[in-house]
């Protein structure tokens, strides 16, 4: 009776400590976002504000460019995801279900490309974009990411599990290869697509590196880039609205992840699909 409880205590304590360490900055952010200005800088540590202060949020949403940054982030992330899916799904289908010379080599290259970090190609891409003059446009934020070795790899692994008969049946039924990709393969790959979408959206929503390099126009700033402007403007003395802005920027991801959690885990596990 005593034993099972004791054996659980240690892992539980460790997990709680770990969770506390990871969550602390978020809790602090939330706490600051809801605190009145005079409670932010105090000598004691108070997690709970004496009263809920919404003015930080109203300030962030009305007096600053946060809504614009959110909009920019949304456009960029949707654009990237749209093109990634548009190109990765047919590529993955071809690699998994079509036979052609050099298929193995091509897939090997995709896998190799997984190993190349974006930072390696960032400078050549920057120079190229400068040449064709699309720096400081939304396209400069979207185009570098539309080819995704990771996406091709993820979808290919998924399509490779599907029985070849299924695609032959579709051919006999009169579907073109393009129709097969979008009407048969893609709907079946929705769990994988959800997982991929979360990876992609999180990575690009949070990305500061590339927006910092490719854009200088404040009107094109994505949320992380925007918060940077915001901090500069306010020189750090307006922490409340800054934290409120941070909450607003973080919230969409957290909510999206919670909603798609089950599909996400399904997609990662990419379990067998029975027809």
């Amino acid at each position: 009776m005593n034993h099972p409880i004791r054996s659980r205590v240690l892992p539980l304590v460790l997990l709680l400590t770990g969770a506390a360490v990871i969550l602390l900055p978020f809790v602090w952010m939330l706490s600051l976002a809801f605190k009145p200005r005079d409670e932010i800088f105090t000598t004691t540590i108070e997690f709970l504000p004496s009263q809920i202060e919404w003015s930080n949020f109203t300030f962030a949403l009305t007096e600053t460019d946060i809504p614009l940054f959110l909009w920019n982030g949304l456009v960029m992330v949707t654009g990237i995801l749209f093109f990634q899916i548009l190109f990765a799904v047919p590529c993955a289908y071809a690699l998994a279900q079509r036979r052609f010379a050099g298929r193995g080599l091509l897939f090997g290259l995709v896998v190799a490309a997984l190993l190349v970090p974006f930072h390696v190609t960032a400078i050549p891409i920057f120079l190229g974009f400068a040449q064709i003059g699309i720096l400081n446009t939304m396209w400069a934020l979207i185009l570098p990411f539309i080819q995704t070795a990771f996406g091709i790899f993820l979808f290919r692994q998924f399509f490779a599990q599907l029985p070849a008969d299924l695609f032959d049946a579709a051919r006999v039924d009169g579907m073109s290869e393009t129709a097969i990709v979008w009407r048969i393969a893609f709907p079946l790959a929705l769990p994988a697509a959800t997982a991929f979408a979360i990876f992609s959206v999180t990575a690009h929503w949070n990305d500061l590196f590339w927006p910092l390099i490719a854009t200088t126009d404040p009107n094109l700033a994505t949320p992380p880039r925007g918060i940077l402007y915001f901090r500069d403007q306010e020189s750090g003395d307006n922490v409340g609205p800054l934290m409120a802005a941070a909450v607003i920027v973080t919230a969409p991801l957290v909510i999206a992840f919670l909603l798609a959690q089950r599909k996400f885990i399904q997609g990662i596990a990419a379990g067998g699909l029975k027809g």
Binding site: D168, A169, G275
Partner: peptide
């Protein structure tokens, strides 16, 4: 001609129904 253009019907061992 493709399978469709020949207007032949095929039934597969694995049934090959569209699961979705």
């Amino acid at each position: 001609l493709s399978a469709y253009e020949r207007n032949v019907a095929m039934v597969f061992q694995s049934y090959a129904l569209y699961p979705h």
